[in-house]
Every structure is written in structure tokens, then in C-alpha cells.
Design a binder for these strands. Structure first.
Lengths: 146, 146
DNA sequence: TCCTTTTGTTTACACTTGTCAACACAAAAA
DNA sequence: TTTTTGTGTTGACAAGTGTAAACAAAAGGA
């Protein structure tokens, strides 16, 4: 199993993971209670999702009396980064910049995050190319883009 | 059908769309030829994917002799933005900043994109909050985060 | 001890996605 | 005109996902 497989979860599974990541670990009843404040999933549904997450080895269980505590085996940060990377990997190279601009404009950012971003940009501007080419068509297509 | 449904396509479908977007429109044979430089999908597979895209009304067809020309009904930019937005919508609010930092560091950006990003950041820094709170647990959970 | 509650396990079913093969049909070639 | 070839149409099937009911087992209370 490659690292990227390890973070492949469905949207519903992801929602459960957010809860478990935040709490560090949780029993099924806790997860059910918390998710049901947002989603009207039945207990059954949540239990199925938990089971699948365990099968995928994204969660591991530790027995605690008669119940299990579900613990994440991967970090939220890593899962997030891989998901974002994967999404951007299949976007047109040329247009990624605009997409990030759009994204940043809408995002709530803290002062420190903004400062870090500014640092990154200054750094990058030192070697940034004038243009970035479209990579949607196979190598060497002359009518390249867009 | 909401706007967001209109851009819901599978990864395989997305790959075809990149080709069609870039060319503005294409026949099945063109698409097959181009995609097969990257993926070893059979003609059948590509034709199925095209059909599904037409069913989803992401492509529309115009008859041209015995063949069809497939045209996108939505813009690449819009599809990209909606996909990115949707992804970020289900990430922990508090950690989005770090994810973007990570993303930006890895991304190839043109000078002009960098400049625009810098403008956006300057603008945002005027009203940026000190911290952004985690929103992974339902409203009012005291042991909030992370 | 017997019942109720809490949790986990099994089974199910419809829909989407990745992948194709088979078939139908019209146009081009022989 | 018969054959071939480029398209489009139908049907399939396995795996993954959303969604859930039914059942089993153990622990706690009556």
C-alpha cells in the first residue's frame, strides 16, 4: 500500500475522521452522537463507515471494556495535504495559479498564515518563470493551448 | 440541478474533459487518440466515458456528418474552482492555512500569479484575525480542538 | 437470574465508476 | 455491390459508496 492509498477515504468517511482526529480517538457512541448533530445518519450507517475505515487501516481499534476506541493511524495534516495535492495534480498546470488566487481570496487566514504565505511567495518570485504552459494535451501537440 | 452538481465528474471523466476543454471541442476519435498517449484505455472505455459526460450534461454533442463533436457546457475555470472549493469546504478550518502554505510551496507559479497573490494577501492582512478556530466538532463543544 | 441497553457483526441493496466486448449502421473503399 | 472501417449504442460486471436493518453478545440493572 502506497502512502497515497493510505489516505483514500470517501467524503462520508472523511467527515467521521474529522471528529476522530480532533478528539484524538473516540468510541462509536461518541462519534455517533457528534456526527448526528450535523448529519442524520443512523447508528448503523456510522458503524458501517467506522468498520470500513478500520478495514482500510485508516483507523485502528483498542478495546476498552466492551467497546472499541477508534484511533487514527494517519495524521490529519498528511491526509489533507495528500488530498489537496492529488486534486491539483489533475488540474491544468497553466491554470493552477488562477485557481489558487481564487481560493486564497475566499479563505479565512490568520495573520501568521498570511505572513508565512508572503514569505513563500517572496522566495518563489526569485525563480518564477514568466509563464507556465498548459499540460492538458500530450507532449508535443503544437496547437498547445487554451 | 445545482451549479455544484453540474461539475461533478469522476477522475477518469475529468481527464477526458481536460482534452476537450483545451481543444474547445473534439470528436470521439480525437479524444481517443489523445488520451491513449497517456492512458491505455480502450476505445470502448473512452466512448462510455463520453456517453456518461453527455448524460450528465457536462458535454453536449453537435452532429458533424456521421460523427459527433463533443463540446463542454461548462468552463474549465468554473469546474476547477468548484472542485477546489468543495475540497476545502470539508477540511478543518483551522488547518486550511497550513495546507495552502504547503500547496503554494510546491506549486509552479508565474510571476504575474505571484504578484496577484501578493496583492490578495496584503488586502487580507488588513482584516485578518489572530487565530482561526477549528470547526471539526459541532458548535459549542468546549474541548474544541486539536 | 432475566431483561434492557450498548456495541459490534452480518447482510443487503441501489447507484456510481472503471473497464470492456458486442453489436448496429452508414459511409468509403474495393 | 460487397466489404471494410469508423462511429455510436447496448449491455455487462466487479469494486466502491451511501444508507440501513437485523442479529448477536456482553454488561448492568431490576
Amino acid at each position: 500500500m502506497t502512502a497515497s492509498d493510505a489516505t483514500k477515504m470517501s467524503p462520508a468517511e472523511w467527515e467521521l475522521m474529522r471528529i476522530i482526529w480532533t478528539k484524538g480517538g473516540a468510541s462509536s457512541s461518541e462519534v455517533i452522537e457528534l456526527i448526528q448533530k450535523k448529519r442524520s445518519w443512523t447508528e448503523s450507517t456510522v458503524k458501517t463507515l467506522l468498520r470500513r475505515l478500520v478495514n482500510k487501516e485508516i483507523l485502528q481499534t483498542v478495546k476498552d471494556g466492551r467497546k472499541f476506541i477508534y484511533h487514527p493511524t494517519i495524521e490529519e495534516k498528511d491526509a489533507m495535504n495528500e488530498n489537496v495535492t492529488e486534486l491539483f495534480d489533475h488540474l491544468c498546470n497553466m491554470k493552477k495559479g488562477k485557481v489558487v488566487i481564487e481560493l486564497l481570496s475566499k479563505l479565512e487566514l490568520s495573520r501568521t498564515d498570511i505572513q508565512e504565505l508572503q514569505k513563500v511567495l517572496v522566495q518563489k518570485s526569485k525563480t518564477a518563470p514568466e509563464v507556465i504552459k498548459c499540460d492538458c494535451l500530450p507532449e508535443g501537440m503544437k496547437d498547445d493551448c487554451c
